[in-house]
Design a protein around this nucleic acid. Structure first.
Lengths: 113, 113
DNA sequence: CCGAATCCAATTAGATACTG
DNA sequence: CAGTATCTAATTGGATTCGG
């Protein structure tokens, strides 16, 4: 069996792989309104996420074509991340996910009591 | 920082965690039409997924309240898996995901050439 | 038929330190 | 400011074996 399994063939398997990064959904959502700089992005993430991890996830999402990295030659350095076309289309999923996530949280609360 | 991070608080972090299993999306989609028995479910999954892995993922999804396991006392044993209420509500996300996944696959193809 | 137990391999996140 | 390199720790999937 191929290492990539059904990546690029089955839409579920493909998406699963893309979003497997622990913070992928959060990053895509945070970039949704517009370009954000690296440190600003980090500030908007949970404190649990380190510099290194954010850097890796961004690289990965960029390699997958979901986000775009724009570097401005300046001192101090300035780099912005934004959604690509296909990344922007993910907003619909993101919205559905947000709604469902909130319902699930309610479900959790009603269940834990 | 708590081990669970924002699980149960942020809808994105929560959902991310739930869907982190390598086959979660595929399983939820496969169960969508109605209850399916274990071996039948396995047959509908990619061959790459083993018996053991499926079993674990099902247990995990059940623990999260997304699916329901129904055991019929009989010989040979018969066990059916189906979506719970909250699991069924995930269909909306699943549909959005399916659409986007297909767009992404197209994007991949146009890019690889 | 359905699954648990165990062990191993692979992946990925986090900590720390260093750079232009 | 925005990274990279390296190491380690934790998680998770896969293979195999055993059981009601």
């Amino acid at each position: 069996m191929d290492k990539k399994d059904y990546f690029g063939i089955c839409p579920y398997a493909t998406t699963q792989k893309l979003l497997s990064g622990k913070w992928a959904l959060l990053i895509l959502h945070t970039l949704s309104p517009g370009p954000v700089r690296f440190n600003e992005l980090k500030r908007r993430m949970p404190a649990a996420m380190t510099h290194t991890t954010l850097s890796r996830q961004l690289k990965s999402l960029e390699a997958d074509g979901l986000i775009i990295r724009t570097e401005y030659s300046a001192i101090p350095p300035k780099v912005e991340y934004s959604l690509s076309d296909i990344g922007r289309k993910f907003d619909k999923v993101s919205d559905a996910l947000f709604e469902w996530g909130n319902e699930y949280i309610k479900f959790l609360e009603s269940r834990d009591v």
